[in-house]
Write a protein that binds this DNA or RNA. Structure first.
Lengths: 152, 152
DNA sequence: GCAAATTCGTTACGCTATAACGTCTCTTAG
DNA sequence: CTAAGAGACGTTATAGCGTAACGAATTTGC
Protein backbone atom coordinates (compact mmCIF):
# COMPACT_ATOMS: atom_id res chain seq x y z
CA UNK A 1 0.00 0.00 0.00
CA UNK A 2 1.43 3.35 -1.02
CA UNK A 3 1.70 6.22 1.40
CA UNK A 4 -0.99 8.00 -0.52
CA UNK A 5 -3.32 5.04 -0.21
CA UNK A 6 -2.59 4.94 3.49
CA UNK A 7 -3.51 8.60 3.82
CA UNK A 8 -6.74 8.01 1.96
CA UNK A 9 -7.57 5.06 4.20
CA UNK A 10 -6.82 7.09 7.31
CA UNK A 11 -9.01 9.92 6.07
CA UNK A 12 -11.82 7.48 5.41
CA UNK A 13 -11.38 6.00 8.87
CA UNK A 14 -11.57 9.46 10.35
CA UNK A 15 -14.79 10.07 8.43
CA UNK A 16 -16.32 6.82 9.61
CA UNK A 17 -15.49 7.60 13.23
CA UNK A 18 -16.84 11.11 13.05
CA UNK A 19 -20.08 9.84 11.57
CA UNK A 20 -20.42 7.42 14.46
CA UNK A 21 -19.45 9.91 17.13
CA UNK A 22 -16.29 7.97 17.88
CA UNK A 23 -12.85 9.46 18.39
CA UNK A 24 -9.94 8.39 16.26
CA UNK A 25 -7.33 9.46 18.79
CA UNK A 26 -3.61 9.76 17.98
CA UNK A 27 -2.84 6.34 19.43
CA UNK A 28 -5.67 4.66 17.56
CA UNK A 29 -4.84 6.46 14.37
CA UNK A 30 -1.18 5.56 14.60
CA UNK A 31 -1.92 1.90 15.30
CA UNK A 32 -4.23 1.80 12.31
CA UNK A 33 -1.53 3.42 10.19
CA UNK A 34 1.03 0.82 11.26
CA UNK A 35 -1.37 -1.93 10.31
CA UNK A 36 -2.16 -0.29 7.01
CA UNK A 37 1.51 0.08 6.11
CA UNK A 38 2.34 -3.53 6.92
CA UNK A 39 2.07 -5.86 3.98
CA UNK A 40 1.23 -8.78 6.24
CA UNK A 41 -0.93 -9.28 9.31
CA UNK A 42 0.67 -7.59 12.28
CA UNK A 43 0.94 -8.93 15.80
CA UNK A 44 -0.03 -6.97 18.87
CA UNK A 45 3.42 -7.02 20.42
CA UNK A 46 5.05 -5.89 17.20
CA UNK A 47 2.73 -2.92 17.17
CA UNK A 48 3.54 -2.34 20.81
CA UNK A 49 7.28 -2.34 20.12
CA UNK A 50 6.92 0.14 17.27
CA UNK A 51 4.73 2.42 19.32
CA UNK A 52 7.14 2.26 22.23
CA UNK A 53 10.01 3.25 19.92
CA UNK A 54 8.14 6.44 19.23
CA UNK A 55 6.63 7.20 22.62
CA UNK A 56 8.72 5.48 25.25
CA UNK A 57 7.55 2.64 27.38
CA UNK A 58 3.88 1.84 27.26
CA UNK A 59 2.27 -1.47 27.99
CA UNK A 60 0.10 -4.11 26.37
CA UNK A 61 -3.19 -2.51 27.44
CA UNK A 62 -2.47 0.57 25.36
CA UNK A 63 -2.22 -1.51 22.22
CA UNK A 64 -5.06 -3.85 23.03
CA UNK A 65 -7.38 -0.98 23.78
CA UNK A 66 -6.59 0.61 20.45
CA UNK A 67 -7.06 -2.71 18.70
CA UNK A 68 -10.39 -3.27 20.45
CA UNK A 69 -11.57 0.10 19.27
CA UNK A 70 -10.49 -0.50 15.69
CA UNK A 71 -12.07 -3.95 15.72
CA UNK A 72 -15.33 -2.61 17.11
CA UNK A 73 -15.51 -0.13 14.28
CA UNK A 74 -14.51 -2.68 11.67
CA UNK A 75 -11.46 -0.65 10.73
CA UNK A 76 -9.39 -3.79 11.18
CA UNK A 77 -9.98 -7.52 11.37
CA UNK A 78 -8.31 -10.13 13.51
CA UNK A 79 -6.89 -13.25 11.91
CA UNK A 80 -7.68 -15.65 14.72
CA UNK A 81 -5.39 -18.47 13.68
CA UNK A 82 -2.43 -16.09 13.46
CA UNK A 83 -3.24 -13.80 16.38
CA UNK A 84 -2.64 -10.94 14.02
CA UNK A 85 -4.44 -7.94 12.66
CA UNK A 86 -5.12 -6.65 9.16
CA UNK A 87 -6.71 -3.48 7.88
CA UNK A 88 -10.21 -3.68 6.56
CA UNK A 89 -11.11 -2.46 3.13
CA UNK A 90 -14.52 -1.01 3.78
CA UNK A 91 -15.49 -0.23 7.30
CA UNK A 92 -18.67 1.48 6.24
CA UNK A 93 -20.42 -1.75 5.41
CA UNK A 94 -20.99 -4.20 8.24
CA UNK A 95 -19.62 -7.53 7.14
CA UNK A 96 -17.79 -10.67 8.12
CA UNK A 97 -14.37 -11.51 6.77
CA UNK A 98 -12.77 -14.77 5.85
CA UNK A 99 -9.10 -15.45 5.27
CA UNK A 100 -6.74 -17.82 3.54
CA UNK A 101 -3.34 -18.00 5.20
CA UNK A 102 -0.12 -19.56 3.98
CA UNK A 103 1.40 -21.83 6.61
CA UNK A 104 4.81 -21.29 5.10
CA UNK A 105 5.24 -17.57 4.52
CA UNK A 106 2.25 -16.17 6.38
CA UNK A 107 0.77 -14.50 3.32
CA UNK A 108 -2.84 -13.72 4.07
CA UNK A 109 -5.66 -12.85 1.72
CA UNK A 110 -9.03 -11.60 2.72
CA UNK A 111 -12.08 -13.27 1.23
CA UNK A 112 -15.52 -11.75 1.16
CA UNK A 113 -18.05 -14.40 0.41
CA UNK A 114 -21.59 -13.77 1.54
CA UNK A 115 -22.73 -17.27 0.69
CA UNK A 116 -20.44 -19.02 3.13
CA UNK A 117 -21.40 -16.56 5.84
CA UNK A 118 -25.07 -17.24 5.18
CA UNK A 119 -24.43 -20.99 5.20
CA UNK A 120 -22.74 -20.95 8.56
CA UNK A 121 -25.38 -18.66 9.98
CA UNK A 122 -28.05 -21.07 8.84
CA UNK A 123 -26.19 -24.03 10.36
CA UNK A 124 -26.07 -22.18 13.67
CA UNK A 125 -29.71 -21.22 13.53
CA UNK A 126 -30.76 -24.77 12.80
CA UNK A 127 -29.35 -25.54 16.25
CA UNK A 128 -31.16 -22.63 17.83
CA UNK A 129 -28.12 -20.38 18.07
CA UNK A 130 -28.20 -16.64 17.45
CA UNK A 131 -24.95 -16.28 15.54
CA UNK A 132 -23.14 -13.03 16.24
CA UNK A 133 -19.64 -13.58 14.99
CA UNK A 134 -18.03 -15.96 12.56
CA UNK A 135 -14.45 -17.11 12.25
CA UNK A 136 -13.76 -18.68 8.89
CA UNK A 137 -10.14 -19.27 7.98
CA UNK A 138 -8.39 -21.64 5.61
CA UNK A 139 -4.75 -22.47 6.13
CA UNK A 140 -2.48 -24.06 3.56
CA UNK A 141 0.13 -23.11 1.02
CA UNK A 142 0.04 -20.03 -1.16
CA UNK A 143 0.87 -20.33 -4.86
CA UNK A 144 4.48 -19.28 -4.38
CA UNK A 145 5.15 -21.68 -1.53
CA UNK A 146 3.48 -24.57 -3.34
CA UNK A 147 6.19 -24.33 -5.97
CA UNK A 148 8.95 -24.21 -3.39
CA UNK A 149 7.45 -27.18 -1.60
CA UNK A 150 7.54 -29.35 -4.71
CA UNK A 151 11.18 -28.55 -5.38
CA UNK A 152 12.31 -29.06 -1.79
CA UNK B 1 -21.39 -38.99 28.42
CA UNK B 2 -21.83 -42.02 30.63
CA UNK B 3 -18.89 -43.96 31.97
CA UNK B 4 -19.82 -46.81 29.72
CA UNK B 5 -19.83 -44.57 26.68
CA UNK B 6 -16.45 -43.25 27.74
CA UNK B 7 -15.10 -46.79 27.93
CA UNK B 8 -16.43 -47.54 24.49
CA UNK B 9 -14.86 -44.40 23.09
CA UNK B 10 -11.53 -45.23 24.70
CA UNK B 11 -11.64 -48.74 23.30
CA UNK B 12 -12.37 -47.36 19.86
CA UNK B 13 -9.50 -44.91 20.23
CA UNK B 14 -7.22 -47.78 21.18
CA UNK B 15 -8.34 -49.66 18.09
CA UNK B 16 -7.72 -46.70 15.82
CA UNK B 17 -4.24 -46.22 17.22
CA UNK B 18 -3.32 -49.85 16.91
CA UNK B 19 -4.48 -49.88 13.31
CA UNK B 20 -2.24 -46.93 12.59
CA UNK B 21 0.74 -48.24 14.50
CA UNK B 22 0.45 -45.44 17.06
CA UNK B 23 0.70 -45.83 20.80
CA UNK B 24 -2.11 -44.70 23.05
CA UNK B 25 0.12 -44.36 26.09
CA UNK B 26 -1.24 -43.92 29.63
CA UNK B 27 -0.80 -40.16 29.55
CA UNK B 28 -2.50 -39.84 26.19
CA UNK B 29 -5.27 -42.19 27.15
CA UNK B 30 -5.91 -40.37 30.41
CA UNK B 31 -6.00 -36.97 28.73
CA UNK B 32 -8.46 -38.29 26.20
CA UNK B 33 -10.58 -39.70 29.00
CA UNK B 34 -10.63 -36.38 30.81
CA UNK B 35 -11.78 -34.67 27.64
CA UNK B 36 -14.41 -37.33 27.00
CA UNK B 37 -15.82 -36.99 30.51
CA UNK B 38 -16.06 -33.21 30.35
CA UNK B 39 -19.37 -31.93 29.09
CA UNK B 40 -17.79 -28.81 27.71
CA UNK B 41 -14.59 -28.03 25.83
CA UNK B 42 -11.64 -28.37 28.15
CA UNK B 43 -8.65 -26.06 28.39
CA UNK B 44 -5.08 -27.27 28.36
CA UNK B 45 -4.21 -25.94 31.80
CA UNK B 46 -7.30 -27.46 33.33
CA UNK B 47 -6.21 -30.82 31.99
CA UNK B 48 -2.74 -30.16 33.30
CA UNK B 49 -4.07 -29.39 36.79
CA UNK B 50 -6.12 -32.58 36.85
CA UNK B 51 -3.24 -34.68 35.65
CA UNK B 52 -0.92 -33.13 38.19
CA UNK B 53 -3.38 -33.99 40.96
CA UNK B 54 -2.94 -37.61 40.02
CA UNK B 55 0.73 -37.73 39.17
CA UNK B 56 2.44 -34.88 40.93
CA UNK B 57 4.02 -31.96 39.23
CA UNK B 58 4.37 -32.18 35.50
CA UNK B 59 4.54 -29.27 33.11
CA UNK B 60 2.73 -27.81 30.15
CA UNK B 61 4.73 -29.78 27.57
CA UNK B 62 3.37 -33.06 28.90
CA UNK B 63 -0.18 -31.95 28.19
CA UNK B 64 0.56 -30.26 24.92
CA UNK B 65 2.35 -33.30 23.59
CA UNK B 66 -0.57 -35.49 24.45
CA UNK B 67 -2.95 -33.01 22.86
CA UNK B 68 -0.83 -32.84 19.73
CA UNK B 69 -0.94 -36.59 19.44
CA UNK B 70 -4.69 -36.76 19.93
CA UNK B 71 -5.21 -33.96 17.44
CA UNK B 72 -2.99 -35.62 14.86
CA UNK B 73 -5.08 -38.75 15.09
CA UNK B 74 -8.35 -36.85 15.04
CA UNK B 75 -9.31 -38.25 18.42
CA UNK B 76 -9.98 -34.68 19.54
CA UNK B 77 -10.57 -31.31 17.93
CA UNK B 78 -9.47 -27.89 19.01
CA UNK B 79 -12.00 -25.10 19.29
CA UNK B 80 -9.76 -22.28 18.15
CA UNK B 81 -11.84 -19.39 19.41
CA UNK B 82 -12.01 -20.93 22.89
CA UNK B 83 -8.51 -22.41 23.09
CA UNK B 84 -10.18 -25.59 24.23
CA UNK B 85 -10.45 -29.20 23.23
CA UNK B 86 -13.35 -31.54 22.57
CA UNK B 87 -13.54 -35.24 21.84
CA UNK B 88 -14.22 -36.27 18.29
CA UNK B 89 -17.06 -38.56 17.44
CA UNK B 90 -15.49 -40.58 14.69
CA UNK B 91 -11.77 -40.58 14.37
CA UNK B 92 -11.82 -43.27 11.72
CA UNK B 93 -13.05 -40.96 9.04
CA UNK B 94 -10.83 -38.03 8.08
CA UNK B 95 -12.89 -34.90 8.29
CA UNK B 96 -13.01 -31.26 9.23
CA UNK B 97 -15.11 -30.01 12.10
CA UNK B 98 -17.06 -26.83 12.59
CA UNK B 99 -18.44 -25.46 15.82
CA UNK B 100 -21.12 -23.19 17.21
CA UNK B 101 -20.19 -21.74 20.58
CA UNK B 102 -22.32 -19.84 23.08
CA UNK B 103 -20.65 -16.61 24.17
CA UNK B 104 -22.58 -16.70 27.40
CA UNK B 105 -22.30 -20.22 28.80
CA UNK B 106 -19.65 -21.74 26.56
CA UNK B 107 -21.89 -24.51 25.28
CA UNK B 108 -20.31 -25.89 22.15
CA UNK B 109 -21.82 -28.05 19.46
CA UNK B 110 -19.95 -29.74 16.70
CA UNK B 111 -21.22 -29.36 13.17
CA UNK B 112 -20.27 -31.61 10.30
CA UNK B 113 -21.18 -29.99 7.07
CA UNK B 114 -19.29 -31.10 4.01
CA UNK B 115 -20.76 -28.38 1.84
CA UNK B 116 -19.28 -25.52 3.79
CA UNK B 117 -15.92 -27.27 3.88
CA UNK B 118 -16.05 -27.72 0.11
CA UNK B 119 -17.04 -24.07 -0.34
CA UNK B 120 -14.15 -22.75 1.66
CA UNK B 121 -11.76 -25.11 -0.06
CA UNK B 122 -12.95 -23.83 -3.40
CA UNK B 123 -12.55 -20.22 -2.32
CA UNK B 124 -8.98 -20.96 -1.32
CA UNK B 125 -8.19 -22.78 -4.49
CA UNK B 126 -9.57 -19.94 -6.59
CA UNK B 127 -6.75 -17.93 -5.10
CA UNK B 128 -4.19 -20.62 -5.80
CA UNK B 129 -3.96 -21.89 -2.25
CA UNK B 130 -3.63 -25.55 -1.33
CA UNK B 131 -5.94 -25.64 1.65
CA UNK B 132 -4.83 -28.02 4.38
CA UNK B 133 -6.79 -27.01 7.40
CA UNK B 134 -9.98 -25.11 8.01
CA UNK B 135 -11.22 -23.25 11.04
CA UNK B 136 -14.94 -22.58 10.88
CA UNK B 137 -16.61 -21.41 14.05
CA UNK B 138 -19.75 -19.45 14.79
CA UNK B 139 -20.14 -17.65 18.08
CA UNK B 140 -23.39 -16.35 19.50
CA UNK B 141 -26.05 -17.32 21.98
CA UNK B 142 -27.36 -20.82 22.52
CA UNK B 143 -31.11 -21.41 22.82
CA UNK B 144 -31.05 -21.38 26.62
CA UNK B 145 -29.04 -18.17 26.89
CA UNK B 146 -31.18 -16.41 24.28
CA UNK B 147 -34.13 -16.75 26.63
CA UNK B 148 -32.15 -15.46 29.59
CA UNK B 149 -30.91 -12.54 27.53
CA UNK B 150 -34.43 -11.42 26.66
CA UNK B 151 -35.53 -11.48 30.26
CA UNK B 152 -32.49 -9.67 31.59
C1' DG C 1 21.47 -57.38 23.07
C1' DC C 2 22.17 -52.97 20.92
C1' DA C 3 21.27 -48.92 18.24
C1' DA C 4 17.69 -45.90 16.98
C1' DA C 5 13.52 -43.81 17.78
C1' DT C 6 9.81 -42.48 20.71
C1' DT C 7 8.01 -40.81 24.90
C1' DC C 8 8.09 -38.21 28.81
C1' DG C 9 9.85 -35.26 32.77
C1' DT C 10 11.92 -30.89 33.71
C1' DT C 11 13.36 -26.12 33.45
C1' DA C 12 13.00 -22.11 31.42
C1' DC C 13 11.07 -18.84 28.61
C1' DG C 14 8.21 -16.18 25.16
C1' DC C 15 3.88 -14.69 23.41
C1' DT C 16 -1.05 -13.34 24.14
C1' DA C 17 -4.24 -10.89 26.81
C1' DT C 18 -6.58 -8.76 30.82
C1' DA C 19 -7.45 -6.83 35.72
C1' DA C 20 -7.21 -3.04 38.44
C1' DC C 21 -6.19 1.53 39.59
C1' DG C 22 -4.98 6.32 38.97
C1' DT C 23 -4.53 10.41 36.06
C1' DC C 24 -5.66 13.39 32.61
C1' DT C 25 -8.73 15.50 29.31
C1' DC C 26 -12.76 16.62 27.29
C1' DT C 27 -17.52 17.41 27.28
C1' DT C 28 -21.68 19.27 28.98
C1' DA C 29 -25.40 20.50 32.02
C1' DG C 30 -26.41 23.71 35.36
C1' DC D 1 -17.66 29.27 34.58
C1' DT D 2 -17.40 25.11 36.81
C1' DA D 3 -18.35 20.82 38.82
C1' DA D 4 -19.59 16.18 37.49
C1' DG D 5 -19.20 12.47 34.55
C1' DA D 6 -17.36 9.89 30.75
C1' DG D 7 -13.75 8.46 27.97
C1' DA D 8 -8.94 7.61 26.99
C1' DC D 9 -4.60 6.45 28.43
C1' DG D 10 -0.46 5.22 31.42
C1' DT D 11 1.17 1.91 34.69
C1' DT D 12 1.89 -2.26 37.31
C1' DA D 13 0.97 -6.69 37.92
C1' DT D 14 -0.68 -11.01 36.68
C1' DA D 15 -3.20 -14.70 34.26
C1' DG D 16 -3.43 -17.77 30.37
C1' DC D 17 -1.48 -20.06 26.21
C1' DG D 18 2.23 -22.41 24.12
C1' DT D 19 7.12 -23.94 22.90
C1' DA D 20 12.42 -24.63 23.05
C1' DA D 21 15.82 -27.39 24.67
C1' DC D 22 17.89 -31.07 27.16
C1' DG D 23 18.24 -35.44 29.39
C1' DA D 24 16.41 -39.78 31.22
C1' DA D 25 13.65 -43.66 30.43
C1' DT D 26 11.25 -46.75 27.59
C1' DT D 27 10.10 -49.11 23.45
C1' DT D 28 11.09 -50.93 18.93
C1' DG D 29 13.50 -53.01 15.16
C1' DC D 30 17.38 -55.38 13.73
Amino acid sequence: MTSQQVEIALARAQRVCTLRGARLTPVRRRVLELILRADQPTKAYVLLAKLEQERGKLGPPTIYRALDFLLAHQLIHKVETSNAFVACDDAERAHQSQFVICEDCGATEEIQDDDIVASLRRLGEMRGFAVERQVIEARGLCPACRVGQRQA
